[in-house]
Amino acid sequence: MTLPTSAPLIALLLAAILWGLSWIPLKHFAAYDVHGVSLNLVAYGGLALLFLPLLWRQRAAWRGQGLTLLGIALLGGYANFAFTTGMALGEVVRVMVLFYLVPVWGVLGGRLFLGEVIDRPRLLGVVLALTGALLILGGPAVLQGEVSWLDLLAISCGLAFAGNNIVFRARPQLPMGSKLAAMFLGCAAMAAAGLEAGVQDWPAAPAAIWGGVLLFGFGWVLLATLGTQWGVTHMEAGRAAILIILELVVAVVSAMLLGGERMSPLELAGGALILGAALLEGWREGKRPVAG
């Protein structure tokens, strides 16, 4: 059956909106001290259990690719863990903008691991994004060590996310279900390790909150993840890259309107540069010739 041309567009737009608004339930859970280790163990642990049977059924397709799945578990698992933690505890606007250094890490990683060429538009995008990050982190103050752990979490989250995307692209023959299962398992395993290490005490939250966390995992996270992966698979790379930026716009605008957050002129300038870099990378992807 032929898919409507608008279907991937709608899926990607809805996924970007879900990710951009995910700070709302995450902040709600954090008010009950449910964040980080506890939230990820319940939300992503539930998803891992859901996908385990699929991972087992697809074992013939990924046999011999254990290291690849391990890489996805580590990179994708950490990216999801860091994203939910940063959005729950940090300033939404700051976390999202720093997370969107993804184009920088994607360009550099693509060059190092996939042999992709860094042409002038890509080099310009890297310079714009790094300059924007410097401004958001306080300009010259960043050289004096005035960077919070949440800033580092957001930056490392983007780095891990870009690395995970590179692994996804490098192994297109692996079933998507197995890749997602590895990512969910990795996040849940990191949360379990954190709990065992005493990183966070288990919060005494009401049962309704834990039910909400499960719904967040099975509903919000799963729909956003499937929408993103399905959308980018059925759409030109450049168009998809630009549409995904809607996630950043939705997060920033909603946090300012609903969360009362504000950005200083320096942060606004930095955010504009990073947004420009992301748009430039999306435009560049769209200019790639399609292999025939």
Rank of each mutant, 00 (worst) to 15 (best):
G211H: 06
L152T: 09
A7H: 12
G145M: 04
L101N: 07
V213K: 00
S6G: 01
L266A: 15
G138C: 07
W210L: 05
R59P: 00
A182D: 07
A208N: 11
V95I: 13
S22F: 05
Q229V: 12
P121L: 07
A154T: 01
F29H: 08
N40W: 03
R111G: 15
A181C: 03
L159Y: 07
G77I: 05
A170M: 06
W230S: 04
A181Q: 00
D201T: 15
E261T: 09
G212V: 11
A141G: 10
A11S: 07
R59Q: 04
L246R: 09
G109S: 13
L49W: 02
G139T: 12
T233N: 08
A237E: 06
V97I: 15
R57V: 13
L128S: 14
L185M: 14
A48I: 01
W283D: 11
M96A: 14
V213P: 05
A43G: 11
P121M: 10
A160T: 00
L39Q: 03
G132I: 11
G163Y: 05
R288C: 12
L123A: 15
H28R: 14
G194N: 08
I155L: 10
A73S: 00
S22M: 12
A207I: 15
A207T: 14
V252Q: 07
A7K: 13
I166K: 10
L14P: 00
A193F: 14
A170I: 11
F81H: 05
E91I: 15
C157W: 02
L69N: 05
